[in-house]
Each structure stands twice: as C-alpha cells, then as structure tokens.
C-alpha cells in the first residue's frame, strides 16, 4: 500500500483550535506540504498574524514568530534582509493584512521583499467575533455592519490581489480558493509557485486564498463553501494576476 495522505512533517502534532469546517486547517496543511516537498522546513521562518491564525506558531513545525496586528510583512522584511537564503513566509488574515496592516503589505510589495505572503480572505473578522473586515462584501451582514455593508457608509471591499499586482515589486500574485478539491489543488500549486519564485529571488509573492468562516457567517460548513463560491468568487475572481517566471 502506498500512502496517499498523511500529516506533513512541517506541521506539529497539535490539534487545530479552528471551528468545525473552517478552512484555515486546509490552508495550513497546503503550506506545510509545500514546505515538505521543497525541503524547506529547516530553512523556513514563518510569521503569524493577529486573528484566528494567531496560534499558527503552535502548528507549523519550523521557526515561527508571532507578529503585532498587521506588522508581519515588516517583521518578515527584517528577517529576510538579514538571512537572505532562508525562506520567509507570513500567514495573514484579511483584517490583519488589508486593514491594520495595509501600509506594511503594500510597502513590502513595493520594495520587492523576497517573501511569500499567505493571505487568507474570509471577508470577516473571525477571532474578535464577526466584525466587518476590509474585504466584507457589499450587503454582507456582520456585527459592525448589522444592516449589511453599504458602499455609502463603509465603502468598498478591498481587492488586495489586484492592488498588489500593480506593484512593480510583486513577482507573483495569485488568488485561489479552497471550497472544493479542484481548487484546493490549484491553491497548493500556487503556493508552490510562490515559494519557488521567492527562492529564485524574483520579488514579493502573495497567494490570496478565499476561505470560509462558518461560525461568523452563521452558516453550516457545507453551506459556507457554497456561500464562498456564489458570493465571494464573483467579486474576487480567481487566477494568477502577476507572474514573473522562474528562468
């Protein structure tokens, strides 16, 4: 018998604290599998956000740091500049990356920092209890947009992949989703590509991954996958937005 699926070495043997059906766990596994397959575990340094993934340092089996809200790209910059041969990644949610950390992410991209950003977009603040995120969709009800997000009041949802694809410093920008097996496989490919482009030193890389938050969306895990497919993908189209090919 051949092993088809087992726990990757780049994940510690700790139980995830995530809610049932939350796709953070899938994304953790994909990142870990990519680190394994590229033999990067021992040279990888990861930075966790503030938000649901704040405890990711308990899960990834490589050197890890916990950042202040939104500052992961700045911390990653400090590390990568001093240790240019290591693989440096941040793992950030939408509130962390696109709201409080908007400055840090844009400038890390503009400087062409050779890091990989795993950006988990679930259109809501998870850990703090379902408040409006910069990526919350128009009309979406959250605890701080209880009548649905209105463009007149709260403005428009941030399209981070499109924004960062504009930056000359970005070498790889891709948006993927994890709502079904085919898209999970595409997400893994995108993470692999981002890490390889980082290794090749071509510039800033980011994979924006559409993810579910069944608890704060008020949906069951399966309904949440459908909600993502029918509501998020039309506004956040999937695909590669910027690719500097590795020669």
């Amino acid at each position: 018998m051949k092993v088809v699926a087992k726990r990757p070495e780049s994940l510690k043997d700790n139980k995830f604290h995530y809610c049932p059906g939350c796709t953070h766990g899938i994304i953790h596994r994909l990142v870990a599998e990519c680190l394994d397959e590229l033999s990067l575990r021992e040279s990888a340094i990861g930075i966790c956000p503030v938000g649901c993934a704040v405890l990711a340092y308990d899960y990834f089996n490589c050197d890890m740091l916990e950042a202040a809200h939104g500052r992961a790209p700045a911390i990653a910059t400090g590390i990568k500049r001093l240790l240019p041969d290591r693989t440096v990644f941040t793992y950030q949610g939408d509130g962390d990356l696109a709201s409080i950390g908007m400055g840090e992410i844009i400038h890390a991209s503009l400087r062409g920092e050779k890091i990989t950003v795993i950006f988990v977009n679930n259109a809501i603040y998870g850990m703090t209890g379902g408040q409006m995120a910069p990526t919350t969709l128009l009309g979406q009800v959250t605890t701080t947009s209880p009548y649905g997000r209105k463009k007149e009041w709260e403005g428009y949802p941030a399209k981070m992949a499109e924004l960062l694809a504009q930056s000359e410093g970005s070498a790889y920008i891709c948006r993927t989703s994890v709502h079904n097996p085919a898209n999970i496989l595409k997400t893994k490919k995108a993470i692999m590509k981002a890490l390889k482009i980082q290794q090749a030193g071509l510039g800033f890389t980011m994979v924006e991954i559409l993810s579910t938050c069944p608890t704060n969306w008020g949906l069951g895990p399966l309904e949440a996958l459908e909600w993502l497919e029918y509501n998020m993908i039309p506004y956040y189209p999937l695909g590669e937005l910027k690719v500097k090919e590795v020669e």
Binding site: A68, A74, G78, L82
Partner: peptide, 14 residues
C-alpha cells in the same frame, strides 16, 4: 516608524 520597529523585531529575532 511602526514598520521600522517591527523590522527591528524581525531582525533582532535572527
């Protein structure tokens, strides 16, 4: 300044 001090955080951690 926020980014600068957090770069120090990352740099010092190395």
């Amino acid at each position: 300044e926020l980014a600068a001090i957090n770069m120090v955080y990352g740099g010092a951690a190395t």
